[in-house]
Nucleic acid binder design. Structure first.
Lengths: 248, 248
DNA sequence: ACCTGAACACCGTTCAAGT
DNA sequence: ACCTGAACACCGTTCAAGT
């Protein structure tokens, strides 16, 4: 009975609009809130209309993944990949840290990216940038290849922290039981926990694990290691390649 | 009309039987085939019976995750964690490679483990083993903590390879399009691809990416880096800590 | 070309009820 | 204590049909 103002023909759907709306939805409510039906409602459309622009949900997620990586590409677009052996490491470092910035804006993105099974042009372009940096930095193709694998998902800025405690992980009996067990048969934990607590408790992290610090620590560990391998590779001074087993 | 032989009262359900059946189901059909209904059918029981032994599906997956890590614990039970500075690296190496063996038996396990939000006693015990190895090997608690984070999911034997091409990723037009783009605006790829192809094409991997080799490469890179940091830490010879920015 | 309505198959789960 | 039956809310998706 109410006169609806649907005359002003809402903007027609398009693959781009669908993907953008999907990202917004996931940003707001997490990836589990991204359902075809909810997405349709957000676009003021019937659920089945989406299938005209996207084959199915898997294809939707593929598209979303590509959009996120495109965002990373924009973020690193101004980084000069024309590196030298002196600069490749810092260049790589800031590339990855900028990618991480994008992932922090889309906390659900790592999981979506990890569940993709097919490459997409955006990641291809992104990794091509890595090849430029590695190659111009003086790495062999072989080492560059290893480096790509070694960085793994960290290359795109996420480390997939094992068991980052979500909200409300402080259950009663489970924690209780585990604490008791820890003290009895896992004697190293008390001293360990005590010695690693951070002193400033004003950040929103757990108090003893600063994700950003740990991410950068691991990243630098890899980059430093790769630089050492590069040096061992190019001049005729073979020292400390990996898997030398026992050597300083 | 057919006389069913249900007299021989099938073994009563239990949390353990439910979890074991869930693992079998996932092993056979992948994690997406693990539904409450399919699990119930496998146990010759109504779907709702499961809820007596497990709170809900999330709790089921928690239990499954714990079982898998328990399997890892058994696998590494005989490893001597009473290390020295000379032996910690190799000990760590074989611990992680054995864990990887378990993950290769349960290809779905990494994803399940990564989606868990709460710790469980098994992972706690597992990481306590790491602390023993690190500590006895001469690391400070602080470095041990960093090491734990740096290893990340690799500690449990998986690296979450980005885009491991699943079966049937050789779609026609998508690959076609991407190949064209590669050649035009991504000029480094042809040479790169050509120089990294493996020579023996008889393993079941892609031909140019050997997962096991890459896993071990990255693992050694981390372990070597950690050993260097340990050495730089304990004696009074501060050389090449990470993030020294530019130094050999 | 683009969108819709009704329907289907399949989820996880609640709840009251059986033994 | 342990299991069941019917039902509910919510998925993704097919298909024929509308404009």
């Amino acid at each position: 009975m109410v006169i609806e103002e649907k005359q002003e023909t809402r903007a027609p759907l398009s693959r781009e609009r669908v993907l953008a709306a999907a990202i917004e939805l996931a940003d707001q409510g997490g990836i589990e809130s991204l359902t075809m039906r909810a997405l349709a409602e957000r676009l003021d459309v019937e659920a089945m209309s989406l299938y005209y622009h996207v084959a199915n949900k898997e294809a939707l997620l593929d598209g979303v993944a590509e959009m996120v990586v495109s965002e990373v590409l924009e973020e690193v677009a101004d980084i000069d990949t024309n590196t030298t052996p002196d600069t490749w490491k810092d260049t790589m470092r800031s590339t990855i840290l900028r990618a991480r910035g994008v992932m922090l804006r889309h906390k659900w993105a790592p999981m979506v990216l990890e569940t993709r099974t097919t490459m997409n042009p955006a990641v291809l372009r992104y990794f091509h940038g890595f090849l430029e940096i590695f190659h111009n930095g003086g790495m062999s193709w072989d080492l560059a290849h290893h480096a790509l694998h070694a960085l793994g998902s960290r290359a795109l800025g996420f480390s997939q922290e094992m068991f980052n405690p979500g909200p409300g992980s402080e259950d009663e009996e489970a924690s209780e039981e585990m604490l008791e067990q820890m003290m009895s048969e896992l004697p190293l934990f008390p001293e360990f926990m005590q010695s690693i607590v951070h002193t400033d408790p004003e950040d929103d992290t757990l108090g003893w694990c600063d994700d950003q610090t740990e991410f950068e620590f691991a990243l630098d560990l890899m980059l430093d290691g790769l630089e050492r391998l590069r040096l061992a590779d190019s001049p005729a001074s073979p020292r400390s390649a990996p898997r030398t087993d026992r050597a300083t």
